[in-house]
Amino acid sequence: MEKTKLSMYQLYKDMLDNYLQSKSEHALYAAQQFSKEMMEKDMSPEEMVSLHMSVFQEMVPDLPEEVVDSFDLLLEVMIGYGLAYREHQSLRDRQQQLESELNVAAEMQQTLLPDEHIDAKGIDFGVISVPAGKMSGDYYHYIQDEHGCIGVAVADVIGKGVPAAMCMSMIKYAMESIPEQRLQPAALLESLNRVVERNIDSNMFITMVYGSYDPRDHRFYYAGAGHEPGFYYSASKDTFEELTTKGLVLGLSQKVTYEEYVKDVQPGDFFVLLSDGVTECRTEEDFIEREQITEMIRKYQHLPAQDIVNRVYRELEKMQDFQLRDDFTLLILKRDV
């Protein structure tokens, strides 16, 4: 440390000397470099002032007393800055630590989502889910059983960030504990509701839509718990229809029943499930209307399902200046033509 101080002393002296003689930009630039080095070596502002004073006194031995004394005052003032600087450094360290913890948690969260692909004959499937921050309060799920039946779900935990993400994992494990209801959307929501109600804080809730598709008779059964309605596209009519469901959000009261709906799915028909991060997109001035979403989907509907969701996401992201305000999940399940 003493050695560093000594070399710093010499370095600063040369620099000051150089500047006083040349008054050049170049010398000032050297000072900028010097300050970076100081910070790396954890030198405080008051140490810097005191260094300046000793160097200067050596260079100009007969300084007026007032000048020398005035530096004591400056030194005192700089001590305050020094404390703030050290505090800032320790906050920065802590922030880095939190950030890396959060990164680990975010990676863990990713592993909760299904990663195998749906590879079913006659079905085209695509999903995209992007958190507003590091962690997501959205959850999506898809699964295929031995008969080729497909279960799909999108859930949205109130709020976002870490608390929402922690709830999301509860949904995942609760769903796994009731595999026999995978193909009964209403019964599944009723079971889930009971689990969520017991385990959730009084001003939290979860919304969810669950659908199951049976490729043998081409029927899509679905039920919703207070979730943002998705869409059903009918190829023969070439229209989008709201996939409205009636049912209370999960976690509010023990005894809730959900209604189950069914649609006959024709070739080319598809279902769009989404979270409110899609429909609640906001531009500078206004909200995005639901019709704008269906128009976007229509524009890309000739593409594979995964490309449709990717493109719609990219377009909406751009409309919001690449700043998502809420977690975003969009899922499409299509019967091939």
Partner: peptide, 11 residues
């Protein structure tokens, strides 16, 4: 109102 706002009314 966003969903967090609804949560307050539920509480």
């Amino acid at each position: 109102i966003d969903s967090t706002g609804l949560g307050v009314f539920i509480g």
